[in-house]
Protein backbone atom coordinates (compact mmCIF):
# COMPACT_ATOMS: atom_id res chain seq x y z
CA UNK A 1 0.00 0.00 0.00
CA UNK A 2 1.23 3.47 -0.76
CA UNK A 3 1.63 5.66 2.29
CA UNK A 4 1.42 8.86 0.23
CA UNK A 5 -1.36 9.57 -2.21
CA UNK A 6 -0.96 11.55 -5.42
CA UNK A 7 -1.56 15.18 -4.59
CA UNK A 8 -0.32 14.86 -1.02
CA UNK A 9 3.17 16.01 -1.91
CA UNK A 10 5.46 17.82 -4.29
CA UNK A 11 8.75 16.42 -5.43
CA UNK A 12 11.56 18.71 -4.33
CA UNK A 13 15.33 18.69 -4.48
CA UNK A 14 17.49 18.80 -1.41
CA UNK A 15 19.53 21.99 -1.31
CA UNK A 16 21.58 20.98 1.72
CA UNK A 17 21.51 18.43 4.51
CA UNK A 18 23.92 19.60 7.18
CA UNK A 19 24.96 17.56 10.19
CA UNK A 20 24.70 19.89 13.19
CA UNK A 21 25.59 17.38 15.89
CA UNK A 22 25.85 13.60 16.10
CA UNK A 23 22.56 12.31 14.68
CA UNK A 24 21.10 15.80 14.23
CA UNK A 25 20.63 17.45 10.83
CA UNK A 26 19.31 20.62 9.19
CA UNK A 27 17.64 19.87 5.86
CA UNK A 28 16.95 22.63 3.37
CA UNK A 29 14.85 22.72 0.23
CA UNK A 30 13.21 25.42 -1.85
CA UNK A 31 9.98 26.97 -0.59
CA UNK A 32 7.05 26.34 -2.93
CA UNK A 33 4.24 27.53 -0.67
CA UNK A 34 3.98 30.34 1.85
CA UNK A 35 3.71 29.22 5.44
CA UNK A 36 3.15 30.66 8.88
CA UNK A 37 5.81 30.25 11.55
CA UNK A 38 4.92 27.22 13.64
CA UNK A 39 3.56 25.18 10.75
CA UNK A 40 4.78 21.73 9.82
CA UNK A 41 5.47 19.81 6.65
CA UNK A 42 5.30 16.09 5.99
CA UNK A 43 8.51 14.70 4.52
CA UNK A 44 9.26 11.45 2.79
CA UNK A 45 11.77 9.79 0.53
CA UNK A 46 9.41 7.30 -1.11
CA UNK A 47 5.65 6.99 -1.53
CA UNK A 48 5.85 3.57 0.14
CA UNK A 49 7.18 4.87 3.44
CA UNK A 50 4.88 6.67 5.81
CA UNK A 51 5.66 10.40 5.86
CA UNK A 52 6.68 12.07 9.09
CA UNK A 53 5.89 15.57 10.24
CA UNK A 54 8.52 18.20 10.95
CA UNK A 55 8.18 21.78 12.13
CA UNK A 56 9.65 24.38 9.83
CA UNK A 57 12.68 26.06 11.37
CA UNK A 58 13.18 28.93 8.92
CA UNK A 59 11.82 32.43 8.50
CA UNK A 60 8.58 32.95 6.62
CA UNK A 61 10.57 35.27 4.33
CA UNK A 62 13.30 32.79 3.43
CA UNK A 63 13.40 31.30 -0.03
CA UNK A 64 14.41 28.00 1.52
CA UNK A 65 12.58 25.91 4.04
CA UNK A 66 14.69 24.44 6.83
CA UNK A 67 13.77 21.40 8.87
CA UNK A 68 15.55 20.10 11.95
CA UNK A 69 15.53 16.37 12.52
CA UNK A 70 17.34 13.75 14.51
CA UNK A 71 18.16 10.35 13.13
CA UNK A 72 16.36 7.47 14.82
CA UNK A 73 18.53 4.39 14.18
CA UNK A 74 15.50 2.06 14.24
CA UNK A 75 13.24 4.50 12.37
CA UNK A 76 12.03 3.92 8.83
CA UNK A 77 12.51 7.42 7.50
CA UNK A 78 15.22 9.34 9.31
CA UNK A 79 18.10 6.94 8.49
CA UNK A 80 17.22 7.54 4.82
CA UNK A 81 16.81 11.28 5.29
CA UNK A 82 20.25 11.48 6.84
CA UNK A 83 21.80 10.00 3.70
CA UNK A 84 20.31 12.60 1.37
CA UNK A 85 22.73 14.77 -0.57
CA UNK A 86 22.18 18.07 -2.40
CA UNK A 87 20.19 17.40 -5.55
CA UNK A 88 18.50 14.25 -4.24
CA UNK A 89 14.71 14.16 -4.52
CA UNK A 90 12.49 14.47 -1.48
CA UNK A 91 8.71 14.40 -1.05
CA UNK A 92 7.30 17.45 0.71
CA UNK A 93 3.70 18.24 1.63
CA UNK A 94 2.17 21.69 1.69
CA UNK A 95 2.76 23.41 5.03
CA UNK A 96 -0.08 22.88 7.45
CA UNK A 97 -0.96 23.07 11.13
CA UNK A 98 -2.27 25.72 13.50
CA UNK A 99 0.49 26.11 16.09
CA UNK A 100 0.91 29.57 14.72
CA UNK A 101 -0.72 32.13 17.02
CA UNK A 102 1.88 33.37 19.44
CA UNK A 103 0.71 36.02 21.84
CA UNK A 104 2.91 38.82 23.14
CA UNK A 105 5.74 38.00 25.57
CA UNK A 106 5.40 34.27 25.20
CA UNK A 107 7.40 31.67 27.05
CA UNK A 108 8.61 29.02 24.64
CA UNK A 109 9.57 25.69 26.17
CA UNK A 110 11.23 23.19 23.86
CA UNK A 111 13.12 19.93 24.00
CA UNK A 112 15.59 18.99 21.27
CA UNK A 113 14.32 19.70 17.77
CA UNK A 114 11.11 20.99 19.35
CA UNK A 115 12.80 24.38 19.23
CA UNK A 116 12.12 24.57 15.47
CA UNK A 117 8.73 26.37 15.48
CA UNK A 118 10.06 28.92 17.94
CA UNK A 119 13.14 29.60 15.83
CA UNK A 120 10.80 30.15 12.89
CA UNK A 121 8.64 32.55 14.90
CA UNK A 122 11.68 34.50 16.09
CA UNK A 123 13.35 34.62 12.68
CA UNK A 124 10.04 35.81 11.21
CA UNK A 125 9.73 38.54 13.86
CA UNK A 126 6.32 37.21 14.82
CA UNK A 127 6.79 37.69 18.54
CA UNK A 128 8.21 40.24 20.92
CA UNK A 129 9.40 39.82 24.46
CA UNK A 130 9.83 36.07 24.15
CA UNK A 131 11.61 33.83 26.61
CA UNK A 132 12.94 30.52 25.30
CA UNK A 133 13.73 27.65 27.64
CA UNK A 134 15.42 24.93 25.62
CA UNK A 135 16.37 21.49 26.85
CA UNK A 136 19.05 19.28 25.31
CA UNK A 137 21.37 16.53 26.51
CA UNK A 138 24.66 18.12 25.40
CA UNK A 139 25.75 21.62 24.32
CA UNK A 140 25.97 20.76 20.61
CA UNK A 141 22.21 20.09 20.55
CA UNK A 142 21.34 23.70 21.32
CA UNK A 143 20.61 24.47 17.69
CA UNK A 144 20.92 28.09 16.47
CA UNK A 145 22.32 29.02 19.88
CA UNK A 146 24.42 31.91 18.55
CA UNK A 147 21.39 33.49 16.92
CA UNK A 148 19.17 32.84 19.94
CA UNK A 149 21.73 34.24 22.40
CA UNK A 150 22.00 37.42 20.38
CA UNK A 151 18.25 37.74 19.83
CA UNK A 152 17.02 36.90 23.32
CA UNK A 153 19.98 37.60 25.62
CA UNK A 154 19.21 36.48 29.16
CA UNK A 155 15.78 35.33 28.03
CA UNK A 156 17.42 32.41 26.26
CA UNK A 157 17.87 29.66 28.81
CA UNK A 158 19.70 26.46 28.01
CA UNK A 159 18.88 23.46 30.17
CA UNK A 160 21.54 20.87 29.57
CA UNK A 161 20.70 17.56 31.18
CA UNK A 162 24.12 15.91 30.80
CA UNK A 163 26.49 18.85 30.98
CA UNK A 164 29.05 19.50 33.67
CA UNK A 165 28.19 22.53 35.79
CA UNK A 166 29.41 25.72 34.12
CA UNK A 167 27.83 27.80 31.43
CA UNK A 168 24.47 26.02 31.33
CA UNK A 169 21.76 25.23 33.77
CA UNK A 170 22.32 21.52 34.44
CA UNK A 171 19.05 19.64 34.36
CA UNK A 172 15.90 19.24 32.35
CA UNK A 173 13.48 22.01 31.43
CA UNK A 174 11.00 20.71 34.00
CA UNK A 175 13.59 21.01 36.77
CA UNK A 176 14.30 24.55 35.67
CA UNK A 177 10.62 25.50 35.52
CA UNK A 178 10.00 24.00 38.93
CA UNK A 179 12.31 26.52 40.57
CA UNK A 180 12.12 29.39 38.06
CA UNK A 181 11.37 32.41 40.20
CA UNK A 182 10.36 34.53 37.19
CA UNK A 183 7.57 32.16 36.22
CA UNK A 184 4.55 34.36 35.54
CA UNK A 185 1.15 32.63 35.40
CA UNK A 186 -0.19 35.50 33.29
CA UNK A 187 2.14 34.82 30.37
CA UNK A 188 1.33 32.37 27.60
CA UNK A 189 3.35 29.17 27.43
CA UNK A 190 4.07 27.29 24.23
CA UNK A 191 5.49 23.80 24.47
CA UNK A 192 7.01 21.65 21.77
CA UNK A 193 8.59 18.24 22.12
CA UNK A 194 7.80 14.62 22.87
CA UNK A 195 4.59 13.53 24.58
CA UNK A 196 6.42 12.88 27.82
CA UNK A 197 8.06 16.30 27.81
CA UNK A 198 4.81 18.12 26.97
CA UNK A 199 2.68 16.22 29.47
CA UNK A 200 5.20 16.65 32.27
CA UNK A 201 5.82 20.32 31.53
CA UNK A 202 2.12 21.10 31.23
CA UNK A 203 1.38 19.42 34.58
CA UNK A 204 4.20 21.32 36.20
CA UNK A 205 3.05 24.69 34.82
CA UNK A 206 -0.50 24.03 35.99
CA UNK A 207 0.81 23.06 39.43
CA UNK A 208 2.62 26.41 39.53
CA UNK A 209 -0.58 28.31 38.81
CA UNK A 210 -0.56 28.69 35.04
CA UNK A 211 -4.14 28.28 33.78
CA UNK A 212 -4.50 25.48 31.20
CA UNK A 213 -5.87 27.95 28.67
CA UNK A 214 -2.52 29.75 28.72
CA UNK A 215 -0.70 26.59 27.63
CA UNK A 216 -0.52 25.56 23.99
CA UNK A 217 1.37 22.46 22.96
CA UNK A 218 2.70 20.84 19.82
CA UNK A 219 3.52 17.18 20.30
CA UNK A 220 5.78 15.22 18.01
CA UNK A 221 3.96 12.02 17.21
Amino acid sequence: MKAWKEGDYRLQQVISNTRLAPGAFLLKFRKQFDFSAGQIVALGVSTDIEPRFYSIASSEEDELISVLYTEKPDGKLTPMLSMLNPGNPILVSKPFGAFTSFKSEPVFVAAGTGVAPFISALLSNKVRGATLIHGAPYPEYFYFSDYLSEKLGRNYIQCCSRCMPGSHYVGRVTSYLLQWDELDPNRNYYLCGSTEMVVETRSLLISRGVPPDRINAEIYF
Binding site: I40, F53, A98, F99, N216, A217, E218
Partner: peptide, 16 residues
Amino acid sequence: FDEERRMLMPIQNVYP
Protein backbone atom coordinates in the same frame (compact mmCIF):
# COMPACT_ATOMS: atom_id res chain seq x y z
CA PHE B 1 -13.97 25.93 19.54
CA ASP B 2 -10.44 26.01 18.23
CA GLU B 3 -8.58 27.46 21.23
CA GLU B 4 -10.53 25.46 23.75
CA ARG B 5 -10.05 22.15 21.94
CA ARG B 6 -6.37 22.96 21.49
CA MET B 7 -6.04 23.35 25.25
CA LEU B 8 -7.70 19.98 25.79
CA MET B 9 -6.19 18.15 22.84
CA PRO B 10 -2.88 19.27 21.29
CA ILE B 11 -3.80 17.40 18.08
CA GLN B 12 -6.05 20.37 17.27
CA ASN B 13 -2.87 22.16 16.21
CA VAL B 14 -2.31 19.57 13.50
CA TYR B 15 -5.81 18.41 12.56
CA PRO B 16 -8.45 21.00 13.50
